[in-house]
């Protein structure tokens, strides 16, 4: 697991109850704006069907350094928060590091009792798609 991914788990598990949700809200606010070029080329983005809100991802780069891009609406702060966590944990890491992140990572944040299971599964869907697109990226090279 990347040290960034590990730090996020520790941060969440250090906090209790509503403080965890506040941290998730902070992540949601910190999600970088999608680069303008994606607005002109929406075909570069893939919809995360597992999420309740319209979330799109793009995965670019090479095996040594993979860059992630997310688009999630402001009216869906929980989903944005999940996207932002994955962005902080994985962006600009190697393909090997991304593929090495456990599929159970979303459950390690300890949010299951606070957030509906549907939501947490949405984050698992996001992670699964990031990993699949990363695998496709290195296969092409």
């Amino acid at each position: 697991m990347t040290s960034a991914a590990q730090n996020i788990i520790e941060e969440f598990n250090f906090l209790e109850g509503s403080n965890k949700l506040e941290l998730l809200l902070e992540f949601s606010e910190a999600l970088p704006e999608l680069e303008a070029r994606f607005g002109e080329h929406p075909e570069l983005l893939e919809r995360v069907e597992e999420c309740q809100s319209p979330v799109f991802i793009a995965v670019e780069g090479n095996a040594d350094r993979v860059s992630l891009h997310f688009s999630a609406p402001r009216e869906a702060p929980t989903t944005r928060g999940f996207a932002s966590i994955l962005n902080s944990a994985l962006n600009n890491h190697s393909a090997e590091q991304i593929l090495g992140l456990s599929d159970d990572y979303p459950s390690m944040l300890g949010l299951d009792s606070l957030i509906s299971p549907l939501r947490v599964r949405g984050m698992r869907g996001m992670l699964a798609r990031i990993k699949r697109k990363t695998a496709e990226l290195i296969d092409q090279k």
């Binding site: 702060p77 928060g81 606070l114």
Partner: peptide
């Protein structure tokens, strides 16, 4: 709300939040 963080991003003045899930 369905999205339980939405209230915290801004709500009607004086409104309290009710979390359906918890």
């Amino acid at each position: 709300n369905e999205d339980i963080l939405l209230y915290d991003t801004g709500h009607i003045e004086g409104a309290v939040k009710l979390d359906w899930h918890t």
